[in-house]
Design a protein around this nucleic acid. Structure first.
Lengths: 290, 290
DNA sequence: CATGATATCTGACTTTAGTCAGATATCTGG
DNA sequence: CCAGATATCTGACTAAAGTCAGATATCATG
């Protein structure tokens, strides 16, 4: 009925008024939006004045005045940095924390309001995740992490759950050769997590072995982040890391029930090889020389 | 990983900056946002001053000044309405249409930008439709329309396509008893379309018969609008219309492959009855006395 | 320790948005 | 035709946001 651009614009209109409502509720606390935004940035852990200014896109004069007005209200304190007295740090006072908490409550209430009365919350949240990931595509950061940290374990949990859904016989981690975490840490290997504005949306592991090659394991991209070519980015980053570690040969196993993975490997220089392990789940094996 | 409120707030952040970018590009045309918004409202067919003021939520004094500034620029002309000289109508001049076209191009470019480089456009658009429908839930209007108009036919097309996907044997309209359009128009029946900000997102038909009852046909809710209790609203509105038309007994047929429909009927006072027609598709039959 | 770079602050502005009371013109119903 | 309602306009204001030039203090470097 509507062409794609009209659908996007309908979305824009809908979302603009919902977001505008949050601004209005912020104004209800008797403070201009500019000051409220600075207070909230500080509350969310941004303490350097220059960082806040940059984040909010403010002129330095305006920023200075906003800080002064928050100080006059007794909500923040500023101090020169010890290592560089030109830079200033801002932090909340006790009263400032109270005020910040009140803003947080408003934000959460608005968020709950958007979800309320929608009988398919999960679908709505999934749509929001998808759009947020798409819009922040260029800002997705790939971070090396310990595979046992919270974010990595969240990704792995989602990965296993998805395999369970995609494999007709289900998936039981304990039957698979669960890679030892220390093989996926430097210097033997590494583990990368893709973070989009605090939310992990993908991962991949590089597992060192003693057989003259390293393995790519646990490549996962959140359903909300598919279509952003994140799988390719994760693979590229892992290959770079492998080169850095002096690894010359990479192998991986996968399953034909995951056709998009196989397609990615084939289109990026991987070559199919015969089975090289006895894991019960994979039925496709690849190799790539770096 | 993130709780629901945090996911909504991540979505808010992502979307705010994307929408802010559009405002910035509008400013690039050397006109304050307020004036640009009025110009665009007129370009989109809103001609009554009061209607525009209401739509944009402007004070009457401010509105008057914005109109004046657009007139001074030579972009619009205003005139008193013939039937009521207190009210004014605004329309674009030739220069105004040019300027409006330029704004449209900016909007479309931004929309294309959001879609660009995403290899799963359809999923992204579906997510946007879902969210737009959810956010404008209270503003969904149910309008009586001729079942042969564009919007009604769009809904019916989507409805048939969905039946094709849901029925294991597919769905061929010509095999079903396609209700005659004139039976779904006053005074024999009616046809309702749910419109969410220009997009049709649901429909239902009330078909008059000569057998002492009327039938509910073609109840459809767009996938993007599920969970908003729109099906129930459409049914309620149709029952009201039926009462208005002096109809005392309603019947409908459906299929057990559409469980959510059956559940809706059962929970709103419909009673299962034996088959009352020889249509090949339905296998469940309901009746409700008004 | 002089010099240029950097971070922040201050003062003096402008623009935009918005508010509000009253003026003006027109309409509607008795 | 009159009284009250309605739609718009005008003038006089305020608040918020943003701009910009220059002042001040501090740092890094040769």
């Amino acid at each position: 009925m509507l062409d794609p651009a009209s659908r996007v614009r309908r979305f824009n209109r809908a979302v603009t008024s919902a977001v505008g409502a949050l601004d209005t509720s912020f104004l209800g606390r008797g403070r201009p939006l500019g000051a409220a935004r600075v207070l909230n940035a500080i509350g969310h852990g941004r303490s350097e004045v220059a960082e806040i200014r940059d984040y909010l896109g403010l002129d330095s004069g305006l920023m200075s005045r906003l800080l002064r007005s928050l100080e006059d209200e007794g909500l923040i304190e500023t101090a020169a940095r010890e290592d560089d007295a030109r830079r200033r740090m801002a932090k909340l006072t006790r009263a400032g924390r109270r005020e910040f908490t009140a803003y947080e409550a408003l934000s959460n209430a608005q968020a709950e309001g958007l979800l309320a009365q929608h009988s398919q919350r999960d679908a709505l949240l999934a749509a929001m995740d998808l759009i947020a990931s798409a819009l922040t595509r260029e800002r997705v950061a790939l971070e090396e992490m310990d595979p046992r940290c919270d974010q990595a374990r969240y990704c792995l949990g989602e990965y296993y759950a998805e395999l369970g859904r995609r494999f007709s016989q289900g998936f039981d981690v304990s039957l698979s050769r669960d890679p030892d975490a220390k093989d996926m840490r430097r210097p033997r290997g590494t583990f990368l997590v893709a973070i989009s504005d605090t939310l992990p949306i993908g991962c991949v592991g590089l597992k060192g072995t003693d057989h003259g090659y390293a393995e790519i394991k646990r490549l996962w991209v959140a359903p909300a982040a598919r279509g952003l070519r994140l799988g390719r980015r994760l693979m590229d980053a892992t290959e770079s890391a492998a080169r850095e570690l002096g690894i010359a040969l990479l192998r991986l196993d996968t399953n034909s029930a995951l056709p998009e993975a196989g397609q990615l490997y084939r289109s990026t220089g991987w070559r199919e090889i015969p089975r090289f392990n006895d894991d019960p789940y994979p039925d496709l094996f690849f190799e790539k020389r770096l």
